[in-house]
Write a protein that binds this DNA or RNA. Structure first.
Lengths: 169, 169
DNA sequence: GTAGTAATGTTATATTATAACTTGTAATAT
DNA sequence: ATATTACAAGTTATAATATAACATTACTAC
């Protein structure tokens, strides 16, 4: 077992072999789509690839611009529909604080992650949120509230930027 | 001690003496502003009052419309500036999932709450998030990420709407 | 191959938010 | 009291984000 993710810092914040990282996620996504009977069509796949180019979140219009330059439709719904599909099925996460989208790089597309947003470099990491989710569910449940969807976003400084003094990336 | 809030369901989801609820919060806000040297000016106070009319979140333009009808400026910055001020100082919370604002009804304006958003009736409750915040801080910290701001939003059904079968309010 | 369904393309517009500058108001120092 | 300063409110304009509605194309099941 080469990696035991539980106590590893998120790769998003460390130098790593990103082209491998990207390929792995994409392959996993393809498999997941096939298994679930989801249609990971060319645009959708391309949007995922674009988001996977780095660990930053991109706005819908930024994605759209890329698509347009590559010959896809140039109207907002093109990007929004692909992003909505990807988000609905857990391939990407919507970062509400940024009105932007980031590719999910975790192995599971099920439970919602804890998003770690670096305010200096803009990179977004994901921590497993299962424990937190359970706990929040319990707190809410004690108040009679049943949680259906959960979003947890932390804004702060990633290790690298904290080392830089928090000023820049 | 009349109420021990820790294991009480949020009043937002139960019938209660709302005019008392509202007055209490407003009085506490005034006190807080005075103590902190914050200028709770007429527009700002009025915006807080408007949000306090019920436990739902309102969009900035909805607030603006109210202000305009009451003779205040009718341009977006009027509303946004008041809302930004109130949010910066914890008098209201921005509900990112809704792009809307809800008055904070907790006694403390310090730590970030866990927002409970009912998808059926639109009411928003707040649970104390201190424990959760600590835990998230720990998880992030273990990855070298230092959390500065945290947002936790749960979408689901409040007790009343769950009893209704989740269809309406 | 036809019918039904889902995805894409396109036009138009709605919604949310901010920049930049002007005018007013309140606190502070003299 | 009045000049100075700083902050708040008003105004104009526009930027950024998102969706509705409908036409066309592609895939799927029969």
């Amino acid at each position: 077992m080469a990696s035991k993710n539980r106590e590893m810092p998120d790769p998003a914040f460390r130098p790593h072999d990103h082209s491998r990282c990207r390929r792995k996620v994409l392959a996993a996504a393809s498999r997941h789509a096939r298994d679930q009977g989801l249609r990971l069509t060319p645009v959708r796949r391309r949007v995922l690839e674009i988001l996977l180019e780095n660990h930053r979140a991109m706005g819908a219009y930024e994605v759209l611009e890329r698509l347009a330059r590559e010959g896809w439709g140039a109207q907002p719904p093109i990007a929004y529909r692909a992003l909505d599909f990807l988000a609905r099925h857990g391939f990407v996460h919507k970062v509400r604080r940024l009105n932007a989208y980031v590719a999910c790089t975790r192995s599971t597309h099920s439970d919602p992650p804890l998003l770690l947003i670096c305010r200096a470099c803009g990179r977004v990491g994901e921590a497993e949120g299962a424990g937190i989710s359970r706990e929040i569910g319990a707190i809410a449940g004690a108040r009679g509230f049943s949680v259906e969807r959960l979003g947890v976003e932390a804004l702060g400084l990633c290790p690298a930027c904290a080392a830089d003094g928090g000023a820049g990336a």
